[in-house]
Amino acid sequence: MKTLFVSYRVTDLDRSLGFYTALGYAELGRVDGGDGNHLVLLKFPGEPAASLELVHRPDGGHVDVGSGFDHLAIQAEALATTLQRLTDAGLEPEPVQYPGGPHGPKTSWLTDPDGYRIELVEWPSGHPDGITEADFS
């Protein structure tokens, strides 16, 4: 088994698509669920398949992100460049942090229009993509 994608329910589909395409996602496809409901599948260029789904149900009411979800983590190859691009696109990433000390990963946080938190991570040189068992040895 493997994780296919994360799915977020969003209040305003156009606003959320604007945010996530500014972040770097590309629309892979849409499913019309009828009654104004839509699913939009997104992926980053270079990813082999969808990694994020936006679910829009106009009659679904307010989106409550405080129900146990914490955040989405996204790897950035060059965090400083990514943060500049996001700022230029009108997004508001937080300052760089070094949660593992000066030789660990660099991170920055971003919040989407519905309040979902996104952690942007740049691994130190030589670190493999993602978190592996080696990070805990």
Rank of each mutant, 00 (worst) to 15 (best):
L17Q: 01
L23A: 11
D14R: 11
L17K: 07
G36K: 03
L42I: 00
G18T: 06
W123Y: 13
R117T: 13
N37G: 08
A49T: 09
S108A: 15
L39I: 05
R9D: 09
P128F: 02
H62N: 04
V121D: 00
V40A: 06
H103D: 15
G18D: 14
F69I: 01
D32Y: 00
G46D: 09
D64C: 04
L41R: 05
K43D: 12
K106P: 01
M1R: 06
P48Q: 09
L72P: 00
V40S: 07
P105N: 14
L23P: 06
P58Y: 00
Y116A: 05
G61K: 09
L39K: 03
V55Q: 11
E77G: 14
D129H: 11
P128M: 06
M1N: 08
R30I: 00
P99T: 01
G104F: 03
T107P: 02
L17M: 14
T81M: 04
L86D: 02
I74S: 04
D59Y: 09
L17I: 02
G126S: 10
P102R: 12
K106Q: 15
E27D: 07
S108P: 07
S125K: 14
G34P: 02
A134F: 08
G68F: 04
P58Q: 06
I131P: 02
Y25Q: 00
A134P: 00
Y98G: 00
G66T: 13
L120F: 00
A134D: 13
D59T: 09
D14P: 01
G101I: 07
I131W: 13
L41M: 12
L54D: 01
Q75L: 05
G34W: 09
R117F: 01
A49C: 06
A76C: 15
T82N: 01
G18R: 14
K2Y: 09
T21E: 09
L42D: 01
T81K: 11
F19N: 00
D135H: 11
D135F: 13
G46W: 12
R15S: 10
D35M: 11
T11M: 10
P58V: 03
A50I: 01
V96Y: 04
D35S: 10
K43M: 10
D135K: 01
L52S: 06
A76K: 09
T21A: 08
P45C: 01
E27L: 04
L86I: 06
D14E: 15
G24Q: 09
